[in-house]
Amino acid sequence: MTAQLLEVDGLGKRFGGFVALDGVDLSIAPGERVGLIGPNGSGKSTLVNCLCGTLANETGSVRFDGRDLSGLVAHQRTRLGMARSFQLPRPFPSMTVGDNLRIPLLYAVNARPGAAHLSVAETRERCAELLGLVGLAGRVHDYPRDLTQVDMRKLELARAMASDPKLLIADEAMAGLSHSEVSDIVALLVRLNERGITVILIEHIMRAVMSFSQRLVVLVSGKKIADGRPDEVIRDAEVERAYLGQ
């Protein structure tokens, strides 16, 4: 068995009396494209927050790239190579698009132990390259308020990519987008994956999930109820029950 990039073991999180995550196990191999689905309130975003260190899990452990992440806060996990995009885009509104991308370059890439600091010119080059990759070339001096909703999502993904991650967690990157915009983002995520980045896609839009994922994981009420090939998972009786009722 090859070494896993991400190993989640018995992850648990409660909010008062509400159990948001109940012993979730998950392992993801390097280079995989994994879709994570589940009805509203099933704990998808809580799982992302626990993985990224925004929330602290109460039970269980997360190992990433051979390292136990317990006790590490969000920015330390980002520096280890775990990046996320937010469900609702959260750009830095007072900065230009280019400066938005500079932040992870300055604070995650340059802060990695042993990494050589990027020069001003290299930083600028990297920004331009990332913007080209997501299709925002030429908008480097614009402010986030000037972007459309789909461009904002692209900026969000570009900023996550700027930290040079091994694992990208895209939390509902496509909610509210049109048919062609969804295809745009899926194509973008596939391109990122082809560059060697492992991607977890959390999404409600089944067309996107099905076309993107090599493996599908289903969360319901904080429990993982299915994990396998997408076409098999969506035929699973329990998954059907969770989505459609009995």
């Binding site: 990224c52 260190g53 925004t54 806060v73 969000a74 920015h75 980002t78 520096r79 990046a83 996320r84 937010f86 959260r90 750009p91 830095f92 509104p93 007072s94 900065m95 400066d99 500079r102 932040i103 992870p104 300055l106 604070y107 995650a108 890439v109 802060a111 900023r159 996550a160 700027a162 930290s163």
Partner: peptide, 22 residues
């Protein structure tokens, strides 16, 4: 770099952490 980091705190702390800002 410090000033850029300060500005991310003013703008959005959660996003700042996610971008590697301590």
């Amino acid at each position: 770099r410090l000033g850029f980091g300060f500005a991310t705190i003013r703008d959005d702390e959660l996003a700042a952490e996610a971008s590697g800002v301590p």
